[in-house]
């Protein structure tokens, strides 16, 4: 447990300090949300309608950012070798990196999403719904991304590859996330069912992703 917390703390520190990805992910999130109205036009009614979906897609893209350094840096500087030799369970290490990455990049996006909702003409219930569904769903995005990061760790240009590998796997999270958000806002559509599916995605990813990532890291080393 001490070692797990140390890994989480180190990941958060590295993300927040110079050279880390936390600020970049947040700014990228802002940039994507800003870009969409330029594409679809400044119609506030339209923006209010598709706003939650814009925020979700932007959060998905931002979650993919910086994943290539999650294990890639440890592989390049030799830390991963030492972690393995130390006897630390590799799945626990992968989970620690994932939790740290989510705290540094996922959580700020969850907090920023309702504020950026102002730009998209969202009313307060919609802001709350987006924040709530992102809080439930973004761990799944990060954890699935962790698997992609482990698969491509040590590749010179893994970042682009991660996006291709991870995006199809995150389709269910996106679907349930946006469905739950619109379910919370309009009456005929259900809220609870997609929201529970969303939570299930996050929990299943939490249970499986660290082990898959650990297996990929170990297999890539041999």
């Amino acid at each position: 447990m001490i070692s797990f917390l140390a890994i989480v703390r180190q990941t958060v520190r590295l993300e927040l300090r110079a050279g880390g990805g936390a600020a970049v992910a947040l700014i990228f999130f802002l940039a994507v949300v800003t870009a969409v109205p330029f594409g679809v036009g400044p119609d506030l009614k339209l923006l209010a309608r598709i706003g939650p979906a814009i925020l979700w897609v932007a959060a998905l893209l931002a979650a993919l950012l910086g994943l290539d350094r999650l294990f890639g840096a440890d592989r390049e500087d030799g830390s991963l070798d030492l972690i393995i030799v130390s006897g630390e369970p590799l799945a626990l290490y992968a989970l620690g990196r994932a939790v740290g990455h989510w705290l540094a990049t996922g959580l700020p996006i969850v907090v920023a999403a309702p504020i950026l909702g102002l730009l998209l003409n969202l009313d307060p219930p919609a802001m709350g719904a987006v924040a709530l569904t992102l809080l439930a769903g973004s761990p799944a995005l990060t954890l699935i991304g962790t698997v992609g990061a482990a698969l491509t760790a040590g590749l010179p240009r893994g970042g682009l590859l991660i996006a291709i590998l991870v995006l199809p796997l995150t389709v269910p999270v996106l679907i349930f996330g946006v469905s739950a958000t619109s379910g919370a806002l309009s009456d005929p559509e259900p809220f609870l069912a997609p929201f529970l599916f969303l939570c299930a995605c996050s929990l299943a990813a939490l249970a499986l992703a660290p082990f898959v990532a650990a297996a990929a890291l170990r297999l890539a080393l041999e």
Binding site: L151, P172, I175, L219, A220
Partner: peptide, 30 residues
């Protein structure tokens, strides 16, 4: 090495394909 890494992804996808199918069905009927 490529074979081992790809094998992990194939299996991850194999678990995921039914979930994707289910979610897309859900999304479509909605």
């Amino acid at each position: 090495r490529a074979g081992r890494i790809a094998a992990v992804l194939i299996l991850v996808g194999f678990i995921n394909i039914p979930i994707i199918k289910f979610s897309v069905d859900w999304w479509n009927t909605l």
